[in-house]
């Protein structure tokens, strides 16, 4: 079907695939300096510089920069940490704040011109973040309740006849130790990956249509317009995913702190 549509252009359209995510190294053959790594480092520098600059000359009447920094901080502290975790929230604000700003910056790099690559569309970055969250919420729970009571609380729901535990205990264990970190990381990864792929399809497709015969040239503005619209949609998704990752981390910590029954 593809060749039938685009015969006039010479050379078929190569649909974007996972190969488009394997970017070549920047310097020679050093596999560790690729664009995602550079973007992650850049995001760390950007976030640090921004918040140091925003908080350095803190005044009662805030400057614009301080106001921007403080509103992001207040959002994470009040809406995410305090409302979800409860009275012990202050200990976890630094982690949640770092997580939120780091993911948000890296996601938004996906639609910033020239950068245009979300580092989180490489699954290893979300994995690392999910491992941090995993270790933190289990460590919090173990420190608060002790190892054995915590495991007992996970494995045995109260109020169930004994034989049913054979059915339920594997599910509970899998939920806490496998599915939670896995879905946490895969949700972020899949959203960033699919979003980037979607943008690639529309922008590259529009570009390819532009090289085709006259009829196809007329269609290509639609593809570009759609691509631009999807870019704004992507912006929404990127903010949402950063929020959800942080929210779920906060929820898991809250669950670890809560006294069950």
């Amino acid at each position: 079907m593809r060749s039938f549509l685009l015969t006039g252009s010479g050379g078929g359209f190569v649909p974007p695939s996972t190969a488009d995510f394997n970017l070549p190294p920047i310097f020679g053959h050093n596999v560790y300096t690729t664009k995602p790594i550079a973007l992650v480092v850049l995001s760390v520098i950007l976030v640090s510089v921004f918040f140091i600059a925003a908080s350095r000359k803190a005044a009662v009447v805030p400057s614009k920069l301080q106001f921007a920094g403080e509103s992001i901080y207040a959002f994470v502290r009040n809406d995410l940490a305090r409302d979800v975790i409860g009275h012990e929230f202050m200990r976890f604000v630094p982690y949640l704040f770092t997580l939120f700003t780091f993911i948000l910056t890296n996601n938004i790099f996906g639609i910033v011109p020239l950068l245009q690559f979300p580092a989180m569309s490489h699954v290893s970055f979300p994995y690392v973040l999910a491992i941090f969250t995993f270790v933190i919420f289990h460590a919090v729970a173990i420190r608060k309740k002790g190892l054995m009571p915590y495991l007992k609380e996970i494995m045995f729901m109260p109020g169930v006849p004994k034989p049913v535990y054979i059915l339920l205990t594997p599910i509970e264990l899998a939920t806490f130790f496998v599915v939670r970190p896995l879905t946490l990381s895969l949700r972020l990864f899949a959203n960033m990956f699919a979003g980037h792929l979607l943008l690639l399809v529309f922008i590259l497709g529009g570009d390819h249509l532009l090289k085709g015969v006259v009829g196809l040239k007329l269609i290509s503005p639609f593809a570009f317009t759609f691509g631009i619209g999807l870019t704004f949609f992507e912006f929404m998704v990127q903010c949402l995913q950063a929020y959800i990752f942080t929210l779920l981390t906060a929820l898991y910590i809250a669950g670890a702190l809560a006294d069950e029954h």
């Binding site: 899998a174 939920t175 599915v179 879905t183 929820l251 809250a254 669950g255």
Partner: peptide, 12 residues
């Protein structure tokens, strides 16, 4: 949180 953990339980 309840909604996400429902999904997690069903999936696992």
């Amino acid at each position: 949180g309840a909604l996400w953990s429902i999904m997690g339980y069903l999936l696992s």
